[in-house]
């Protein structure tokens, strides 16, 4: 898209979510709270999702993602606060809301004893449509599992189940797609393929809200909310979240990783040290810490093949830093 500024033309704003542009908002949530018994599942959660946005909730199990999604899909009532989806209140307008939602619950909720084809036909049927009517919307995804259309859903691999579940959630052409942990328990390849499908769906204009415990998937979203213990720690674009890390970050490597970790934990100038694959990510207390200081500290302790380099933080680094802050 191009904008031409001639003379005094008022500045054109990008379609950002603002109070004066309600038509652009798909989901609006404010002050949402919910508890089960004496356990707080959600505590004062507020956020907006713009139309056509791919919005991710990133957080571990038990953070409150499923509770939030069940409230958004009108399956649970909030204790406090309000939520609207496409202008429909999740409590009052639940009937209308259910017409426009596509929902994929945490476990792939398919009928194991029905075939691929039969599952799709059934889920189309309960939305009063047929697989043929909206075929082009699911074609991209469904064509990958179509060779197995006679196979029972229970006999599909995790990745194929996931594709079928997504096809079933899409078959009635929903305006908003709510996906609760679609990539949990699925292998790395299927996860990547799944996010590629979501990216293509997003370009068709559908609003997608998705949750995941895998931090590395955050970069696939337009914006993400980092969620922990029923509260949102941060909402922003993945790039902005990384930029706001606000501290230096060092990746350290040496031959004996286990001993290296223990030694870095004892390092006086260190704030935190956590293993990330073959490296250990060290957050120093003082920004001005020099790599040479880390190296000499480790050399004195007899480490070999030491490598220290400054790196950009990942979403996971940010998440852990925020967890530490909130403690």
């Amino acid at each position: 898209m191009c904008f031409y500024f001639i003379g005094n033309t008022p500045p054109v704003s990008l379609p950002l979510v603002t109070e004066n542009m309600p038509s652009n908002i798909s989901i609006q949530v404010s002050g949402l709270a919910r508890h089960f018994g004496n356990k707080t599942a959600l505590n004062d959660v507020s956020f907006d999702v713009a139309k056509g946005e791919l919005f991710g909730f990133i957080g571990p199990d038990g953070a409150g993602k499923t509770t939030l999604f069940r409230i958004l899909t009108s399956l649970l009532l909030p204790d406090a606060g309000s939520a609207t989806v496409e202008g429909l209140d999740v409590v009052k307008d639940y009937k209308k809301l259910r017409e426009i939602l596509g929902y994929m619950p945490g476990r792939f909720s398919l009928y194991q004893d029905l075939s691929v084809e039969e599952n799709l036909r059934f889920f189309a049927g309960i939305f009063r449509t047929t697989p043929e009517a909206n075929y082009d919307l699911v074609k991209d995804i469904y064509s990958q599992i179509e060779p197995f259309r006679k196979r029972k859903a229970g006999k599909l691999s995790g990745g194929m189940k996931q594709k079928l579940a997504l096809s079933c959630a899409l078959i009635h052409k929903p305006e908003v797609l709510v996906l609760d942990e679609p990539t949990t328990g699925v292998d790395a390849v299927s996860r990547i393929e799944f996010w590629e499908m979501l990216a293509r769906l997003r370009s068709s204009g559908i609003t997608i809200v998705v949750s995941t415990p895998y931090m590395d998937e955050a970069s696939r979203c337009d914006r993400v909310a980092l969620i922990q213990n029923g509260g949102i720690m941060s909402i922003d674009t993945p790039a902005a979240i990384r930029k706001n890390f606000g501290r230096a970050l060092w990746a350290v490597k040496a031959d004996d990783a286990y001993r290296l970790l223990a030694d870095l934990r004892r390092f006086k100038a260190g704030r935190s040290a956590f293993p990330f694959g073959e490296y250990i990510h060290l957050v120093p207390d003082d920004e001005r810490l020099k790599p040479a200081e880390i190296e000499s500290y480790l050399q004195a302790l007899g480490h070999s093949h030491i490598s220290v380099r400054q790196i950009e933080p990942s979403i996971e680094d940010c998440f852990m830093e925020m967890m530490k802050d909130s403690e």
């Binding site: 619950p105 476990r107 909720s109």
Partner: peptide
Amino acid sequence: EMGTMEILLVSPM
């Protein structure tokens, strides 16, 4: 138990 009830509830049925 299978979780399919969730989808049925979220449908216009």
